[in-house]
Simulated scan of single mutants.
Amino acid sequence: MGLLSNRVARESLKPGDHIYSWRTAYIYAHHGIYIGDDKVIHFTRRGQEVGTGTFIDFLLVSSSPTQVPCTTCTPAEEDHGVVISCLNCFLSGGILYRFEYSVNPALFLAKARGGTCTLAVSDPPEVVVARAKYLLENGFGCYNVFKNNCEDFAIYCKTGLLVLDNGAIGQGGQVASIIGGPLAAALATPLRLVTTNIYGMAVSAVAMYCANRYAADIGSGMRRDVVKVSAEDLTRRLSTGLLQVIEPLPSVPHSVS
Rank of each mutant, 00 (worst) to 15 (best):
R7H: 14
V8H: 01
A9I: 04
R10Q: 09
S12N: 06
Y20P: 00
S21A: 10
R23Q: 09
T24M: 08
I27W: 01
I33Q: 00
Y34V: 05
V40F: 06
V40S: 04
T44H: 03
R45V: 00
G53V: 03
I56P: 00
I56N: 03
L60C: 00
S62I: 01
S64D: 03
T66S: 11
P69M: 07
P69G: 12
C73P: 11
T74D: 10
A76N: 09
A76W: 08
H80L: 03
G81C: 00
V82W: 03
G94T: 12
I95D: 01
Y97M: 09
P105D: 11
L107N: 10
A112K: 11
G115F: 04
T118H: 11
A120D: 08
D123A: 13
P124F: 09
P124I: 07
V128S: 09
V128D: 02
A132Y: 00
L136S: 03
F146E: 08
N148L: 01
K158L: 03
D165V: 09
G173M: 04
V175K: 09
V175R: 05
A176R: 04
L187N: 02
T195V: 11
M201R: 10
M201T: 12
A202F: 15
V203H: 11
S204I: 08
N212K: 10
R213I: 03
R213S: 01
A215Q: 10
I218F: 10
D225K: 01
K228G: 14
V229H: 04
E232F: 11
L234K: 06
R236T: 05
L243C: 05
I246W: 14
E247C: 10
P248E: 14
L249W: 05
H254A: 15
